[in-house]
Amino acid sequence: MRKGEQAALAVSGAEFAVRVTPRARVASCVLEGGVWRIAVGAPPEDGRANAAVAEVLAHALGVAKGRLVLVRGATSREKRFRLE
C-alpha cells in the first residue's frame, strides 16, 4: 500500500478495528469491510508486533505513527487504534 493511500480516513478521533497476523512471511495491509487486516513479520513479543502494526497503519493513513494510540487489544489479534 502506498503512503497515504487511505488519507481520507485520517480524521482526528477516528478509531480503526485491526485484525493482526504476526510472524507473516509477506507483510500486507488491506481494508476489508471496515476492518484493517494487517500482516507483519514481527513476533508478538515485547510489543514488537504492536509497534509494527502501528507503523504500517500510520503509513497507510499518511500520518505519523506517534498519532496512533492502541486503545484495546494489546495481547490480542483483534485491536483497536485511535488517531489522536
Results as ranks from 00 to 15, higher is better:
78 E>K: 13
35 V>C: 06
8 A>I: 09
55 E>W: 00
72 R>M: 12
22 P>R: 10
25 R>W: 05
36 W>F: 11
20 V>T: 09
3 K>F: 14
28 S>P: 10
58 A>F: 01
73 G>F: 04
24 A>P: 01
14 A>M: 10
52 A>P: 02
61 L>I: 00
2 R>H: 13
79 K>G: 02
47 G>H: 06
8 A>R: 14
73 G>C: 07
54 A>P: 00
54 A>S: 03
84 E>V: 12
3 K>P: 13
23 R>G: 03
64 A>N: 02
30 V>R: 15
20 V>R: 01
57 L>P: 00
60 A>W: 01
80 R>H: 08
54 A>R: 04
79 K>V: 10
84 E>M: 13
18 V>R: 00
1 M>H: 14
8 A>S: 15
52 A>D: 04
7 A>F: 11
58 A>V: 11
5 E>M: 15
28 S>V: 11
5 E>S: 13
44 P>G: 00
20 V>I: 09
15 E>K: 15
27 A>N: 08
4 G>R: 10
5 E>V: 15
36 W>K: 05
74 A>C: 05
80 R>S: 07
27 A>E: 11
63 V>K: 02
25 R>S: 13
62 G>Y: 03
44 P>Y: 01
7 A>K: 12
60 A>I: 05
38 I>D: 01
64 A>D: 07
20 V>G: 00
79 K>A: 11
9 L>R: 08
84 E>P: 13
27 A>K: 06
26 V>N: 14
46 D>W: 09
30 V>K: 09
12 S>V: 13
48 R>D: 00
51 A>E: 03
32 E>G: 09
80 R>M: 08
77 R>G: 09
18 V>C: 08
31 L>T: 06
75 T>R: 10
64 A>Q: 04
48 R>I: 05
40 V>F: 04
11 V>F: 09
81 F>V: 09
69 V>A: 12
66 G>A: 03
39 A>H: 12
8 A>N: 11
36 W>C: 05
66 G>I: 03
59 H>V: 07
46 D>H: 15
48 R>P: 00
78 E>S: 13
25 R>V: 12
11 V>S: 04
27 A>S: 07
28 S>T: 13
61 L>S: 00
14 A>G: 05
36 W>E: 04
47 G>A: 07
15 E>M: 10
66 G>L: 01
53 V>N: 02
29 C>R: 06
73 G>P: 02
8 A>H: 15
30 V>Y: 06
72 R>C: 13
10 A>N: 06
36 W>D: 04
54 A>T: 01
16 F>W: 11
49 A>D: 11
35 V>E: 04
35 V>F: 06
48 R>A: 09
41 G>S: 12
42 A>D: 04
49 A>R: 01
63 V>G: 01
3 K>L: 15
79 K>I: 08
54 A>K: 01
81 F>I: 05
79 K>H: 05
12 S>A: 11
1 M>P: 14
49 A>T: 03
